[in-house]
């Protein structure tokens, strides 16, 4: 617990000076809030931009943050120093993952409030965001686990985040994309968010999200069984 807290605090200090990661936590909440407050179009549902950017936030920020942090630590051998100081791989991943999750949740709280969610709806919105962030954090950690340096991590994370972030958005304009995009957890979370008020969700939505989580978990386990945290 002590080691996890130390990793968490280090990450908090480091991120404040790491613009590439910091911007990921701020960009989507800030843009969505600005667009939500400034763009008023007839027939546009309330909180449209918040919902759209919330899913992009899930599909990008945690993946980039987590994979960049791990890949940088591997590349610069700071991770090895930590592990040699008896920090366990689980403690490192939990400390870093918790930090990324909390930062993302802070953005999600702002987005939820500005998006007009209140009471139970706000709670449901945050639960959905929290689940999405956890899956993305695991995916980001898996990418970081497979990559020896940041350049390789970038080349792996970009396609993943483009698919996860943009397919749900494009699915609103194209039925074919919508049909195939349903297999992604990010699109399922978009559907959940769209139906927060009416609760019209089917069992298959929960199953698909669950399957996504299991697949990401397996990828995560394979990544660390195969390579360890620092091999």
């Amino acid at each position: 617990m002590n080691n996890m807290k130390a990793i968490f605090c280090k990450q908090a200090k480091d991120t404040m000076k790491n613009k590439a990661v910091l911007i990921q936590f701020l960009m989507f909440p800030v843009i969505s809030i600005i667009m939500n407050q400034t763009i008023k179009v007839d027939n546009l549902p309330e909180g449209y931009f918040i919902r759209m950017f919330a899913v992009m936030y899930i599909g990008m920020a945690p993946i980039i943050a987590m994979s960049s942090i791990i890949a940088e630590e591997r590349e610069k051998n700071t991770l090895r120093v930590l592990l040699m100081s008896n920090v366990k791989p689980g403690e490192y991943l939990l400390g870093t993952g918790t930090y990324v999750w909390i930062m993302c949740m802070l953005g999600a709280i702002c987005m939820g409030i500005v998006g007009g969610y209140r009471g139970t709806d706000l709670m449901n919105f945050l639960i959905l965001m929290a689940v999405g962030f956890i899956i993305s954090i695991l995916l980001g950690a898996s990418i970081g686990g497979f990559c020896k340096n940041q350049m390789v991590a970038n080349s792996m994370m970009v396609p993943a985040m483009l698919i996860l972030a943009f397919v749900p958005m494009m699915a609103t304009f194209n039925t074919t994309i919508e049909k195939y995009g349903q297999i992604l957890y990010s699109q399922q979370i978009q559907l959940f968010i769209s139906h927060i008020n009416d609760g019209k969700m089917e069992m298959k939505n929960y199953v698909i999200t669950g399957i996504n989580m299991v697949i990401v978990l397996i990828t995560f386990v394979v990544a660390y069984r195969k390579n360890g945290l620092d091999e």
Partner: peptide, 12 residues
């Protein structure tokens, strides 16, 4: 342990 390839947290 101090090894040549061990890094520092550059921004800290």
């Amino acid at each position: 342990i101090m090894m040549d390839q061990f890094g520092l947290y550059e921004r800290l």
